[in-house]
Design a protein around this nucleic acid. Structure first.
Length: 416
RNA sequence: GGAGAGGUCGCAUAGCUUGGUCGAGUGCGCGCGACUGGAAAUCGCGUGGACCGUAAGGUCUCGGGAGUUCGAAUCUCCCCCUCUCCGCCA
């Protein structure tokens, strides 16, 4: 959420951000709502000040056994008037809040316009002297993936991992968490279901409600990423300065309806409704949040480097960047049979966009201010499995297990 | 799910019976100062947040919401959360 002050002082920046997201929002309406709000607020506060004074006076007079009826009579009218004005005020404030929730974050000045920028490409793209099978074929053949039974028990695009496939999933989760722990992140195992409030805090709502799995009975949502519970750990808190920076890492399954995404790029594990992910979240001081973003990207990259998977880092343009982010790098891993790069991580600095919604602040000697929140996948599993199955594939149809994962396999070096 | 007890300014608690000098007392913590060679102890002062305002100042905030009242931390109703006991259960 943007502060009213910022909107007031930088209308052009806000308009530009709205436009680059393809939204249509009339900013003028915010200004008129705001001035109406102020007017009502002022009027209400003046009347309240008067009532407060009268209240003490009544109390004193009663103590001295003096006449109070006329003053009470007058205050009856004042209270009625306050109620009336407050109802207008509430209305304006609600409208204003709803409006503000619709406004996207402002991209940082280093964000490229229109087109994404490939920042770096790391690792060698493997050459094969045989035809590499797509992961869904090799996976079914090795009996480590079973899309058929999963779609029967649930529906399409819900994966089922079997045997060494399931073990690969578990090994990756453990490997990632262990690595991030060494990098200084505290491991968290959070709820996988959150309330509406937490979803709003992260910026998933109001725009993405259609993309979420929703439990009507409790007004709960299945998390689309562990970012939501992790960022909300400190909601409504004022942290002491010494606590910052805070680094959290969590494994969670991620649930996404992916409404309207059918068709392209949906085969096998490429785009699924449930996938595992290890997520990194940082709460930091505003001063160094952009350095922290670079470190976050490096921490996520380390996973790909250790797995020896070729990848590239893409800096998203103002058009591609998500609603709540000010700057975002995507990590894309090469998949040998798809012959393309797949997004496995999004590392973003949200500045105070989320902390303002979630009311996460820190107190220093000088002032109390909002923290900056960052998060990044470290990393998403389904597509990482795709990359392993397709890049580590051998001519005989087996899959070599990446060296760093072998300790998690108890001596097994290959899936065949 | 049933019965009961609670949710107060960083933490711990008082205040709620009997509504008004309670935006709130006390202890701890924290900050500044005094004392000291230095420290502990002690003493003094200060110490939440939001909004409006250049400021002075004003308003709001006692889990959240609604209500009663001239006036609500205090009374009523609804919701959320915590704890204890019972039930159910991996």
């Amino acid at each position: 959420m943007l502060s009213l002050k910022f909107i007031r002082e930088n209308p052009e920046k806000v308009k530009k951000a709205i436009k680059s997201k393809g939204l249509e929002i009339d900013l003028q309406k915010i200004f008129s709502l705001d001035s109406q709000r102020k007017q009502f607020l002022n009027e209400s506060e003046n009347l309240r000040a008067r009532r407060n004074r009268a209240s003490t006076e009544i109390a004193k007079k009663k103590g001295a056994r003096k006449e109070t009826a006329s003053l009470i009579e007058e205050m009856k009218k004042v209270s009625k008037k306050i109620k009336e004005i407050d109802s207008f005020l509430d209305e304006k404030e609600k409208e204003l809040d709803e409006f503000r929730l619709l406004l996207p974050n402002i991209p940082h000045s280093s964000v490229p316009l229109e087109k994404n920028l490939i920042v770096r490409t790391v690792g060698e793209i493997p050459e094969f002297n045989f035809k590499v099978l797509p992961h869904w074929e090799i996976g079914e053949r090795l009996e480590i993936l079973d899309f058929k039974s999963a779609s029967r028990m649930t529906g399409r695009a819900f994966p089922l991992y079997k045997g060494l496939g399931a073990k690969l999933e578990r090994a990756l989760i453990n490997f990632m968490l262990d690595t991030h722990q060494k990098q200084g992140y505290q491991e968290i195992s959070p709820p996988f279901i959150v309330n509406r409030h937490s979803m709003k805090n992260c910026g998933q709502l109001p725009w993405l409600e259609e993309d979420m799995y929703y439990i009507k009975k409790d007004d709960f949502f299945l998390i689309p990423t562990a970012e939501v519970p992790l960022t909300n750990i400190h909601q409504d808190e004022i942290l002491t300065e010494e606590k910052l920076p805070i680094y959290y890492a969590a494994y969670s399954p991620c649930f996404r309806r992916e409404a309207g995404a059918y068709g392209k790029e949906t085969k096998g594990l490429l785009r699924v409704h449930q996938f595992d992910k290890v997520e990194l979240v940082k709460l930091v001081k505003p001063k160094n949040s952009y350095e922290e973003l670079e470190k976050l990207v490096a921490d996520a990259e380390e996973i790909l480097q250790l797995l020896k998977l070729p990848y590239r880092v893409v800096l998203l343009s103002d058009k591609e960047i998500s609603f709540a982010a000010a700057k975002c790098y995507d990590l894309e891993v090469w998949a040998g049979a798809q012959k393309e790069y797949l997004e496995v991580s999004s590392c973003s600095n949200y500045e105070d966009f989320q902390s303002r919604r979630a009311k996460i602040k820190y107190r220093s000697k000088e002032a109390t201010s909002f923290v900056h929140t960052l998060n990044g996948s470290g990393i998403a599993l389904a597509r990482t499995v795709v990359a392993i199955l397709e890049n580590y594939q051998q001519k005989d149809g087996s899959i070599i297990i990446p060296e760093v994962l072998q300790p998690y396999f108890g001596g097994i070096k290959k899936i065949s």
